[in-house]
């Protein structure tokens, strides 16, 4: 739930990058951290294992500066989090998702990862409904089809068929990406930021 502090004129929003393990969630945050101007970001905080797999979460605070018309200016801050993708960390994902205002679902485009993508998306739906107590269909979600540079990837249409089926009419925006080179990363961030703001 976004926090609007009228006394300090601040708005805080929480965005969580969710998805299967090794899908590129941390790479998204690392790229954003390299691209955003120094004055607009804090330190990238990672709670990871010795092998650099996310253990609890990564955290990147972004400060968008003072925004709005003269008499209604607010300092806007986005807090970006990732969850650990590995299956055994389901409870940890639930904990990080607490209070989220929007989610970027980072899917792995490789054909053999489709099942993992689907499982993770189902778990997300369950978490939003049961643990956050929100309507999944109305919750701000952006899809990112990552790893588009690899050879064995499903087509965008195939990914849509499984993760964003037209029959479900979810209408999620989706962005192809190569997170470690940065392709599509900022477009995804822009899309989720605007979506979250539109729901404030």
């Amino acid at each position: 739930m976004a926090l609007i502090n009228v006394a300090t004129r601040e708005i805080h929003c929480k965005v969580v990058y969710y998805g299967p393990g090794m899908g590129g969630k941390t790479s998204n945050l690392q790229y954003i951290h390299t691209q955003v101007p120094k004055e607009a970001k804090g330190d990238l905080l990672s709670i990871a294992t010795e092998t650099e797999r996310t253990l609890f979460f990564d955290f990147l605070p972004l400060d968008l500066g003072t925004v709005g018309p003269k008499d209604r200016k607010f300092q806007v801050r986005f807090h970006l989090y990732t969850v650990p993708g590995q299956v055994l960390y389901e409870r940890t994902r639930t904990a990080v998702l607490n209070g989220a205002d929007g989610v970027v679902f980072v899917a792995d485009s490789q054909k053999h990862k489709m099942e993992e993508n689907l499982k993770s998306l189902r778990e997300l739906a369950n978490n939003i409904t049961k643990n956050l107590g929100k309507n999944f269909r109305e919750f701000p979600i952006i899809l990112q089809y990552n790893k588009r540079d690899l050879k064995n990837v499903a087509t965008i249409e195939e990914l849509d068929r499984y993760l964003n089926p037209p029959a479900m009419n979810l209408g999620w925006q989706r962005y192809p990406a190569v997170a470690y080179t940065g392709e599509g990363v900022l477009d995804t961030l822009k899309a989720i930021s605007k979506l979250v703001i539109s729901k404030l």
Partner: peptide, 24 residues
């Protein structure tokens, strides 16, 4: 009511800031 605090012009101005800040 949220409109009391933010107003619609806030959202437009916010979108412009997002475009400006998050660009490659």
């Amino acid at each position: 009511a949220r409109e009391d605090v933010l107003g619609s012009s806030f959202r437009t101005s916010m979108e412009d800031t997002i475009d400006l800040l998050f660009r490659d």
